[in-house]
């Protein structure tokens, strides 16, 4: 059972207190977007073995969404950060680089 710290209320919570919300940093493709942009937005997801960015909600706590960077193979958590960001913050990227020099995830590295 994973443990994640909610950056909003500061509580370190068991997975049973949280609800997963899929991939983070998905950019919305609304009206005017091409068919392939819509396809990417709705259906195409990363499936890495290694660092990954996810959406989580502190569902049975403060109710807030947050984002987490996590290694899908070792389950190491590189950090959690507010949902109100469009890209992973520098300190999270640095934490990943420490373990996985040269990592890439979509457009982030």
């Amino acid at each position: 059972m994973l443990i994640l710290t909610c950056p909003c209320c500061g509580v370190t919570a068991d997975e049973t207190e949280l609800a997963g919300g899929g991939e983070a940093h998905v950019r919305r493709a609304g009206p005017g977007a091409s068919e392939s942009e819509v396809e990417d937005y709705l259906f195409m997801r990363e499936n890495p073995r290694g660092p990954h960015f996810e959406r989580w909600r502190h569902a049975y706590g403060c109710g807030k969404w947050f984002l987490a960077a996590r290694d899908t193979a070792t389950l190491e958590v590189f950090g959690t950060y507010p949902a109100q960001t469009t890209e992973p913050p520098e300190h999270i990227r640095a934490a990943i680089t420490e373990r996985h020099p040269g990592w890439r995830w979509r457009d982030f590295s």
């Binding site: 919305r28 959406r55 909600r57 569902a59 109710g63 807030k64 969404w65 949902a83 109100q84």
Partner: peptide, 13 residues
């Protein structure tokens, strides 16, 4: 309610 909160917190914050 959760759907509304999701969009408010994560898209139109």
């Amino acid at each position: 309610h959760a759907h509304m909160e999701d969009w408010l917190q994560c898209e139109w914050w």
